[in-house]
C-alpha cells in the first residue's frame, strides 16, 4: 500500500478544510495511507509575493525540515506545489539545504497529478449528476503543466458531462494581494470568469486551486448566485465534502 504525506496549505486549513478532508477521503478510498505532519504551516508564497523573500526562505527551510524525509508529498493546492517546485531551489540557492530543496521538489505532487500520473488511476469511483466545466488555474496549467489529469478524472465521474468553458485558461483575478490592492481590475477578471461559467451551462465549475476557489466562491456568494465552484477533490469525494 502506498503512503503519502499530506501538505494542507493554510488557505485550505483555515478557510476550506473540506477540501483537505476530501483529499484524505479520496486517497483512503483508493487504499493510500495518509500522514499529516501537525507542525506544518504555510509554504511561504504570501511572503514571496509581497517581496519578503527572507521570510519565505524561513518557511521553505521549515517545510524542508518537516517534509524532507517523506517519500511522496501530496497537496490539493497547485499554487503551493508550484511555489515549492519553482521557488524553493531559487530561495535556497546559497543555503546548505539547496540539494534537499531540489530533491524535495521532485517528490511533491498536486493531487490530480498524483492520482493520474503516479497511481495511474483515472476512475476514483465518484458520482455527480450534472454538467461540469473546468477552470485551468494559472499555476496549475502554466506553472505545473497540469491540465489533462483533472479532466481525465472528471471524465470518469459517473453521471457527469464535461462542457467547454470559454477562455478556461484565463486568470480568475485572484493573485493574493492583487485582489485587494487592484480590486477594480480583479473584479473585472472574476466577472469575466463567472460570466463564462454561466454561459457554459455547467452546474458547477471545477478548479484544483484553493485560491481560485476562494476568489470565485467569494464573488458568487456576494452576488447571491446559486451556482458554485468546487475543488476537484470535493467533487470526487462526494456531497458531504462540498461545503466549506
Amino acid at each position: 500500500m502506498s503512503k503519502v504525506s499530506l501538505f494542507i496549505p493554510c488557505l485550505v486549513d483555515m478557510f476550506a478544510p473540506s477540501i483537505g478532508m476530501a483529499t484524505v477521503a479520496i486517497l483512503e478510498r483508493l487504499g493510500v495511507e495518509t500522514v499529516y505532519h501537525d507542525e506544518q504551516t504555510c509554504c511561504g508564497q504570501p511572503a514571496l509575493n509581497a517581496g519578503y523573500g527572507n521570510y519565505a526562505l524561513e518557511a521553505a527551510r521549515r517545510f524542508i525540515s518537516i517534509f524532507g524525509d517523506d517519500e511522496v508529498i501530496v497537496s490539493p493546492a497547485g499554487s503551493c506545489v508550484y511555489m515549492i517546485k519553482r521557488y524553493y531551489p531559487e530561495l535556497l540557492e546559497d543555503d546548505p539545504l539547496y540539494p534537499m530543496a531540489v530533491d524535495l521538489s521532485s517528490r511533491v505532487y498536486e493531487l490530480s497529478q498524483y492520482l493520474v500520473d503516479v497511481l495511474d488511476i483515472t476512475d476514483v469511483g465518484a458520482q455527480y449528476e450534472g454538467k461540469v466545466a473546468y477552470h485551468e488555474s494559472c499555476h496549475i496549467l502554466r506553472g505545473l503543466g497540469i491540465s489533462r489529469q483533472p479532466k481525465v478524472l472528471l471524465s470518469k465521474v459517473k453521471g457527469t458531462e464535461i462542457v467547454p468553458l470559454f477562455a478556461a485558461e484565463m486568470c480568475c483575478g485572484f493573485g493574493g494581494e492583487f485582489a485587494d490592492r487592484y480590486h477594480y481590475i480583479s473584479e473585472e477578471m472574476v466577472k469575466d470568469k463567472v460570466n463564462n461559467f454561466q454561459a457554459s451551462g455547467a452546474d458547477v465549475l471545477i478548479t484544483c486551486e484553493p485560491g481560485c476557489y476562494l476568489n470565485l466562491n467569494g464573488f458568487l456568494h456576494r452576488q447571491q448566485e446559486n451556482k458554485k465552484v468546487l475543488h476537484l477533490a470535493q467533487l470526487l469525494a462526494g456531497p458531504e465534502f462540498q461545503g466549506l
Binding site: 478557510f15 478544510p17 483537505g20 485582489a179 490592492r181 464573488f219 456568494h221 456576494r222 452576488q223
Partner: peptide, 18 residues
C-alpha cells in the same frame, strides 16, 4: 477593503483541517 467591495470571504473555520 478592496477585496470586500464585491466579494465575500469564508470565515476562519470553526474546525480547521488540523
Amino acid at each position: 477593503p478592496g477585496w470586500f467591495k464585491e466579494r465575500d470571504f469564508p470565515s476562519i473555520s470553526d474546525s480547521t483541517f488540523r
